[in-house]
Simulated scan of single mutants.
Amino acid sequence: MPTQLEELVEFLHSPQPAVVSIALDNLVGYSQGSHQSVFAYNNYESVTDLKKLAQESGKVTVSQSVTILANLCTDTKVRDLIVEDADFLKFLVGSIIRLTNMSTDLMCILLTNLAKNDHITKVFDFDLEHTPEQAKVFKSTKAMDCLMDCFVKGFDRTLNRYASFDYLAYFFADISRFTRGREYFITEQSYDEVVPISKLLVFTEKYDSKIRREGVASTIKNSLFDASKHAELVNNAKINLLPYILLPIAGPEEIDEDDMFDLPEELQLLPSDKKREPLKGLICIHLESLLLLCTTREMREYLRGKATYALVREVHKVHMEDDNIVDLCDRLVQMLMRDEANEDEQKVEEVDMEEDDSDDDAIVEVL
């Protein structure tokens, strides 16, 4: 005999909308913690029900169904059942770019949680059909391009007054862990002739949104695992990557004049009230990005010429009590101050780094 909770789960596919509504109302609270296991009843039939309900027209039904699915993503079996359903995944992305959708931010959280699964790269294969109104906003029908446009253009709720699209930052961070994701962010796209990573850089100092800063910082870091692209990312004036890594870790400290004017122009003569990134974990991510740029001698020389050492030295002084920051600063100093006079010009330094697997690996739960 099923338990009372299992009976509630069974009610999710009732033909009576009122019964389904009561079931959803009661089950949202059980989608977190130890009670989650009830959704596995009858071979996870509830996941199929919830995916169908997420495609209904009622706002409450949709938001509750998506909330439950997002929370259940802590269960890898549930994640697989959702993300391997290409039709539902395409529906989810299509709904996020529907600019009147009142559940968009919840759907962004669900999409982010699904990005822990390798099958998420199917997003790159989706072509979407636009309404006349959407066609005015989105110049590409490719799903990933549309998600980028939502994130960049929709941060101030001018695209969709119900959505900030902030959680797409975590989605980008996760999908950039995959080769196909990294290639997307560092490759010029034909529809607008822009390299996607360049659209995200401005958000590294968006201090009113931890989510955006955190996700974008991790996306930058993950996009740097292909050393052959480093020169293009820092030398191409349309991308100009380095200042956006250095600015968040720069504070109001005075730097010697000899070093000051070697810094990228964006970091010269910073105001006395310049804010440094307040989250130590994010400072670490930016320092790790600099370490990745140190992979080749060409880039080490470039960083030296841009007075990166002087800035890292100041970060070290300010955060001497933080072991992680001190360790990363020390490693950077060793790379930047090394004597390379007798080394092979083409020698590549192995940098012991892995794709970010901390914050962008965490499942986002909806309370």
Rank of each mutant, 00 (worst) to 15 (best):
L247H: 01
L263H: 02
A231P: 01
P264T: 12
H286Q: 09
L267N: 03
P264Q: 15
D256V: 10
D256G: 07
Q268V: 08
L290H: 03
A237P: 07
F261S: 02
K238W: 00
P271E: 09
L246Q: 00
S289T: 09
D273K: 07
E288M: 05
L292G: 12
K275E: 15
E254N: 09
D259A: 11
P264D: 15
P243N: 11
K275Y: 06
I283L: 14
L290R: 00
I249V: 10
L263N: 01
A227N: 14
N236K: 13
E277M: 09
E254Y: 07
I245Q: 02
P271Y: 08
L287R: 00
D262C: 13
L292E: 14
A250F: 04
P271G: 11
L279A: 10
P264H: 15
L287P: 03
V234N: 00
L233Y: 03
K229P: 02
H286D: 04
I285R: 09
D258N: 11
L291I: 09
E266S: 10
I285F: 10
D258L: 09
D259F: 05
L287V: 12
N235K: 11
L287Q: 03
K238H: 06
L269K: 14
L279R: 08
L282K: 10
L282T: 07
D226C: 04
L242F: 08
I283Y: 12
E277H: 07
L290K: 02
D226M: 03
D256P: 04
R276G: 01
A237F: 06
S272C: 06
N235S: 11
P278W: 15
S289E: 05
S223E: 02
L269P: 08
I283E: 11
L269F: 15
N240H: 14
K274Y: 02
L282D: 06
Q268I: 11
Q268C: 08
L224Y: 11
D226I: 06
P248M: 12
A227H: 14
P264G: 12
S272Y: 05
F225Q: 05
R276K: 08
D256C: 08
E232M: 14
D273Q: 06
D256K: 11
M260N: 06
I245D: 01
H286A: 04
L242I: 06
C284A: 14
A250D: 07
K238Y: 01
E254C: 02
I285E: 13
D256A: 13
L269M: 14
A227C: 15
N236T: 12
S272G: 13
I245Y: 00
P243V: 13
L279W: 14
E277T: 07
L241W: 11
A227M: 14
N236C: 10
E254H: 09
D273H: 02
I245M: 06
K275P: 05
K280D: 08
